[in-house]
Write a protein that binds this DNA or RNA. Structure first.
Lengths: 201, 201
DNA sequence: TTTGTTGTAGGACGGTCATCCTACACCTGC
DNA sequence: GCAGGTGTAGGATGACCGTCCTACAACAAA
């Protein structure tokens, strides 16, 4: 906390505001108020709003990477790891209820703005995709791993979207349960022994 | 075409622009340019931007209702009707590729803006939900009908979101195929005879 | 012809936005 | 003490936004 720079604080505040209000609907003043900093002083840290966005995306990529690594430490079995992903829908329910999935909603917004950082934002999705794929490979689904990863991604995305529209936790719980059952059917005939903790490179 | 009022043209142009650029990112000038009308003259037709949004939502509700009725005429078997819904992902691919699902993205945006018309927009979702539920009831899944409807809704939403992020048509085709297969498993043991064309009321 | 309604054109308004500039406080090294 | 880098404060700028107003064209009814 003490060693965080003003720059870090700006990016963290922007991260939250972009999630809750959207990128475009968040002004410099909003961020300035959140960080308790002079509005005009932003130029010293970030030349443009797009630069803040890129920093926010980088932050999210970093945080996601850390989270995935943590999950790998906490759960050795790939099924349990994938379950961690699925369960974000419940653990982050209080936010998802109002603002949906931070990744999906950002990508959607940037697509409509035809923003330069669209591809950069999609990298957060790709991070999850690659990680999920790796888990499915470990489960023995080498050929279908990417399709399975995309399927999990899409499923959770859809649930998040409907969750924020209807604010219905029972629906989310039901879908999470279904996803876990579906996952189980892809786990049962997998060899239990040879899971490697090593990722790609 | 000839009997359309200026008002209709405004709403139709706004409908398209809200879909492609988002509600907030679309200005009065944008709509005015599209309709070839004086910018300041909007006040005569719509007192506020929110009023245009409500008109757009009403238009979408009307169009959706018409489409569902058309589907009912074209397909007598509930499975085929639900398939029509699933296949929008492919028939509207050229738009979904860039802008996602018009319903989901609007609801998501309005949620972040904390806009008054959030509930109104969610009615478009509810329209699909109710219709899908009815089809599942006709398929003999009286008890689970709503959950199944929500599942189809969520699944297609997620696919649309990832489709607009990765622009990958193969993925969409694959998921559509899977959805149809999944649907089939809920159709096979349904009684083939007694499908009623009558809806609720 | 006059009156009134309906619709349009174009610009004025107050506000907000991203951006940019300048003045100033703080600190470190000389 | 002084110079120079680092960070901050606060306001200026110009563009754009939603909103609103007024003048005017077109047409129908009186």
């Amino acid at each position: 906390m003490s060693d965080k720079t003003t720059c870090d604080h700006i990016v963290e505040a922007a991260d939250q505001l972009f999630y809750r209000q959207g990128y475009e609907h968040t002004s410099f003043s909003d961020i300035a108020d959140a960080v308790q900093i002079s509005r005009g002083n932003f130029y010293y840290h970030f030349k443009t709003k797009a630069e803040i966005l890129d920093a926010v995306i980088d932050l999210r990529i970093g945080n996601t990477r850390k989270m995935l690594e943590r999950w790998e430490g906490e759960a050795k079995h790939p099924e349990d790891r994938i379950k961690r992903y699925i369960h974000i829908l419940l653990t982050n329910w209080s936010k998802i209820k109002y603002f949906g999935c931070p990744v999906g909603t950002l990508c959607t917004e940037l697509a409509k703005l035809n923003h330069t950082s669209q591809e950069e934002a999609s990298k957060i999705f790709t991070l999850f995709r690659t990680w999920l794929r790796q888990q499915f490979i470990l489960l023995g689904h080498k050929k279908d791993a990417d399709a399975l990863a995309m399927h999990v991604l899409a499923w959770s995305q859809g649930v998040a979207t409907l969750a924020s529209t209807f604010h219905d936790k029972k629906f989310v719980s039901k879908e999470v349960k279904q996803m876990c059952e579906w996952l189980k059917s892809y786990t049962e005939n997998a060899t239990q022994t040879e899971y490697s903790t090593n990722q790609n490179k």
